[in-house]
Each structure stands twice: as C-alpha cells, then as structure tokens.
Amino acid sequence: MNPRDFFEDGTVTISTTTYTVYKTKQPEETAFATIQDANETTVVAEDGTVDESNVVESEPGWKLLTFEMVLPFELVGFLAVVASELADEDISIFALSAYSTDHVLVKTDDVAAATKKLESLGCTVRVTAN
C-alpha cells in the first residue's frame, strides 16, 4: 500500500477555528484533543477556551487540517509523507491521529503554503466551519 495513493482525489479540510496547543495541569472538557502521558497533559483547544489557571505553557495560532479519508492501520508512512512534504516548505506540524483519520495542525501563517503543497499531491483542500 503506497501512502501517496491516498492523496489522489483525497480531501483535506481546514478548520476556520484557530487552536492553541496547551500544556495543562489536567485535561480540559472543551478540548478538541487531549494527550496525557506520565510526564504531562497536552490539550488542543479552540483559542481562549481553556481555563488559564490550568495552563502551564501554550502555543497559539494553529489551524486544523483534517485528512477526510479512512486510513487503514496497515498503511505505513502516511504521516511521514505529510510531514516530509510540508517540511520541504519549512512548515512545522503538530500531528494527531484518530482511529481512522489523521489531523495536522499548522501555524496560521503557513496555511496558504500547506494548501498549495497538499494540492500538488492531488488533494482537494477546502475550508470548513467546525
């Protein structure tokens, strides 16, 4: 299975919402995503929705790009291709995977370049309200 095949005729949606990646003292109910390990709790939430007294550090200004395609567990290297292609454009990502869908966050200033790059891979990119 070639991960590049999934870009052809694939759709990527870009959220109109702007997100912040927070390091918090505990999970937040309003978060889009929560990652909790032995060392820290990270939440991705809409800007300004996290209780500031819970915030340890934050990195604002991210847009959510969702790969609107079912990605099988057997698929190897999909996010590696995404990360590599965007890295070629000097675009940093924050990657998240759900059960069958991958998401990346890119800085707001990088959305136009990320869109152009993903379109060059064969994706249809569209903006959508959450």
Rank of each mutant, 00 (worst) to 15 (best):
N2V: 07
N2T: 06
R4G: 01
D5Y: 11
D9I: 01
G10I: 14
T13P: 05
T13F: 08
T13Y: 10
S15G: 11
T16H: 12
T17S: 12
Y19V: 08
V21R: 01
V21M: 06
T24I: 08
K25Y: 02
E28I: 05
T30L: 13
A31S: 09
F32K: 10
A33H: 03
A33R: 03
I35M: 12
A45N: 11
A45L: 13
E46V: 15
G48M: 11
G48I: 12
E52F: 08
S53W: 15
P60K: 03
G61R: 02
G61D: 08
W62Q: 13
T66L: 06
P72F: 00
L75Y: 05
L75I: 07
G77P: 08
A83L: 01
S84R: 10
L86D: 03
L86Q: 03
E89D: 09
S92K: 11
S92R: 11
F94V: 11
L96P: 02
S100D: 11
T101E: 14
T101H: 15
D102W: 00
H103R: 05
H103M: 07
V104S: 02
K107Y: 14
T108W: 01
A112F: 05
A113I: 00
K116D: 14
K117V: 10
K117P: 01
L118H: 04
L121R: 02
V127M: 05
A129H: 11
